[in-house]
Design a protein around this nucleic acid. Sequence first.
DNA 1: TTGGTTTTCATAAGCGTTTTCATAAATATA
DNA 2: TATATTTATGAAAACGCTTATGAAAACCAA
Lengths: 336, 336
Amino acid sequence: MPVTIYDVAREAGVSMATVSRVVNGNPNVKPLTRKKVLAAIERLGYRPNAVARGLASKKTTTVGVIIPDISSLFFSELARGIEDIATMYKYNIILCNSDQRMEKELQLINTLLEKQVDGLLFLGAEIKEDHLQALTSTSVPTVLAATRDADNVLPSVSIDHFQAAYDATEALVSRGHKRIAMIAGPANDPLAGLMRYEGYKKALKDAGIELDEELIATGNYFYESGLSTTKAFLALKNPPTAIFAANDEMAIGAIHAIQDSGLNVPGDIEVIGHDNIRLVEMVRPRLTSVVQPMYDIGAVAMRLLTKYMNNENVEEHVVLLPHRIEYRESTKPEQA
Amino acid sequence: MPVTIYDVAREAGVSMATVSRVVNGNPNVKPLTRKKVLAAIERLGYRPNAVARGLASKKTTTVGVIIPDISSLFFSELARGIEDIATMYKYNIILCNSDQRMEKELQLINTLLEKQVDGLLFLGAEIKEDHLQALTSTSVPTVLAATRDADNVLPSVSIDHFQAAYDATEALVSRGHKRIAMIAGPANDPLAGLMRYEGYKKALKDAGIELDEELIATGNYFYESGLSTTKAFLALKNPPTAIFAANDEMAIGAIHAIQDSGLNVPGDIEVIGHDNIRLVEMVRPRLTSVVQPMYDIGAVAMRLLTKYMNNENVEEHVVLLPHRIEYRESTKPEQA
DNA sequence: TTGGTTTTCATAAGCGTTTTCATAAATATA
DNA sequence: TATATTTATGAAAACGCTTATGAAAACCAA
């Protein structure tokens, strides 16, 4: 029923091949012919069928994006970066939520490959052997965003989580704190979970501060867990004087727990978060946070992927974006 | 290079048709044959080509989603609802950001139709004649989510914005307020902007309160605009005693502006927001807000779309989901 | 057995493009 | 003018699958 390239060809009095050339901007078409074809297209309201094109050309101008949870402030910002660059390079995005469940992740990889995506963007936490297996056994280029496989087999774009956490802790140390608590992420999250914890430990060690197990809690990145873990900290006989949370939501939970107990931030306890999501500006006091450039990670990852899809040369397949600390009112000015 | 259905057929000693039947779960295959085919598939690592299938079957099991901005807390929650239901019905999502720019919206509609999506979900603010034109001139079913066209031509899922705003204002009235300010949305946003404003006006009128232009500000839905408009309110010789903001982010901005000026919420000024995004729990005092069930809107819209795609019967093509007010600490308990 | 059903499968015709490949037309070169 | 190049076009073969159509096989009742 819909009008096809064949209809246009007949209407314009040329062959399908010529119509195809016109549609695809092939220069080898006489201007007059091009005009006739364009007129026919207009007259008939022809709309090229991208599926047929995909079959014939073996390109879909579509990339698959596997993301843990699009409703998270963190990932949705990343997704926006991905989509903007994708649009710039004329790609569309098939977006899938994985909830970090490995089984689902593997299944999604498969579905997306069935759909013949030209490339794959994988966001998640842990990259296991099965992931590597699935992602490397295809010729479809893949880039990891905001994560990294242990052996740097796959191209990836992220920040140096260890160093970022080190810097955050160090900032607290340099403010004279001895009892610095950490609300860490789950240990099965090697980067945002484990690496940040390692960075924290190293910073303490370098400062000659002994690790106190009581000051380490594990959260799940949600506000609620920041609230509850901090309540527990405050109940200690010797509570912390500073808290570093592995992400901002938990940090905000920490702030509220502190305030709810009648204490002051940063007066009594200083708090520093991680990621610098938009929320940090929407709390009082506003949250000091390690800037993780989510949008840029998405954008750079997508850009990197386009290079692989075009067989362009790539110098560095593991890119670490810079991080920094954005100081706000949840920490005191550094001592002179 | 990749293995095709033909390879599987040869390997299993059957015809392509039979392989196709097995892959698609057609029951008309002898168990033994099915087993042979499955074994061959396994052995060869066959992965069906969805593009070829799409061309042959004229179904892509893909739906297009046009969304203003995925990085917004509001829309990303909606998107999650859409995606979950889509997954449930075996559809994939092509996600596109429109930034509410009409030109881009129209272009995206076109692109998605080229990609032969089985259905279209459109989220945005204003539905103009051009949108209607583009969306009704195709046989691809479309559902509007979180918005509605003026004449209810297209299927849609949303809430009754007028009534919701009425209720919110009325709640403030019933608490004895006479000077109730509103931070409205842009007037070119017919539902969340205009309708909520109308609801506010009507509630005041019904309460016999005269409209004071000074107490009406227009924001852009961002935190910053809540902050600045409220600062202006506070500078009035006769400032408001209650504020209704057209969305939560602006309401939170309002709270902080009030607190920054040394006043108390809800003691001096009560604040009520709209949408009930996750943020409302992350402020002190926690924000009273009109619940707009974003996730459900997305989910219901997607479900509705599946019905159209399957030619199922649909009783009501314009669905209004219920709203309610969730009371928290930014408002005082109702007077006895 | 016979004839009628029902199952099970193979053949082959699309689906709407892109992309060789070959040829015709136009232009340049000698 | 004749020949060599270049440029424009068309014919037709993929691309990998679904889906009539219809034949063969298997089953059943009489």
